[in-house]
């Protein structure tokens, strides 16, 4: 499987709101946001904690559904799809990188990276080769048999990035990818993400509260109290 260069995915959030229901109280996290991610751009969503930036990211990645409004991928509406179809879309088009890595416990680095291909039905040999390739490209080629508990935070995040990239997604969503890392690992992880974005021209959305991190992106959008701040 070649690292095929696919044009990035364009995403549009159209007047979305998200209201959480916590113990009978309605907590609005997003109060009405219209926002587009252009094909192949690297965008930073910044804001303080609780501003709703992560929720916007989850809505864009189809992990969550807006209370009102709609989400479009390439001009087709995707938020109203069935859970199964949304899972397929996530598998085909979206890569996630989380603050706390979210590697599957008691599973090797290689198995973690293979996982998206497994759900896509790629045969074992091809799956393995592709996963090795990706681990190598993030500098973890010598750790493929290691369990996540045997890796440092920076190493875990590299494995997570390999997993996010293994299926060549058009959209890479990174939620505070450096939040749990020391500054040296943070720089190398960001470097990795930006290089991957440049190479594949995928759309990259980076959620962060750190202005230093946001500087890596070509465009910055500020979120405050569930609304976009005009810049």
């Amino acid at each position: 499987m070649q690292e095929d260069v696919r044009p990035g995915l364009s995403v549009r959030l159209d007047a979305v709101t998200k209201i959480y229901n916590v113990a009978g109280d309605e907590l609005p996290a997003i109060r009405g946001v219209t926002l587009s991610f252009d094909r192949g751009e690297a965008l930073a969503l910044v804001g303080s904690s609780g501003s709703g930036k992560s929720t916007l990211l989850h809505l864009s990645g189809l992990l969550d559904r807006p209370t009102t409004g709609a989400v479009f991928y390439e001009n087709s509406r995707v938020d109203s799809l069935s859970p199964s179809d949304r899972a397929i879309l996530r598998n085909r088009s979206v890569g996630f990188v989380f603050q706390n890595f979210q590697l599957i416990p008691r599973t090797t680095a290689l198995e973690n990276v293979e996982m998206p291909l497994l759900y896509r039905g790629v045969p074992p040999r091809e799956r393995r080769e592709r996963a090795r390739e990706l681990l190598l490209s993030v500098g973890m080629g010598d750790r493929e048999r290691h369990y996540s508990s045997q890796l440092s935070g920076g190493q875990q995040q590299r494995v997570a990035i390999a997993r996010a990239l293994v299926a060549s997604p058009g959209l890479l969503l990174a939620d505070e990818p450096t939040g749990n890392l020391d500054s040296r690992s943070a720089v190398s992880v960001l470097d990795l993400l930006m290089k991957a974005q440049e190479r594949t021209r995928m759309t990259l959305v980076l959620v962060t509260h750190d202005a230093e991190v946001a500087r890596f992106a070509s465009r910055t959008v500020r979120v405050r109290d569930g609304l976009l701040e005009k810049s």
């Binding site: 992990l63 397929i88 996530r90 599957i104 996982m115 998206p116 759900y119």
Partner: peptide
Amino acid sequence: IRMAIGARPRD
């Protein structure tokens, strides 16, 4: 995690 990376409910 599995759902995030594309496991369908039936998987």
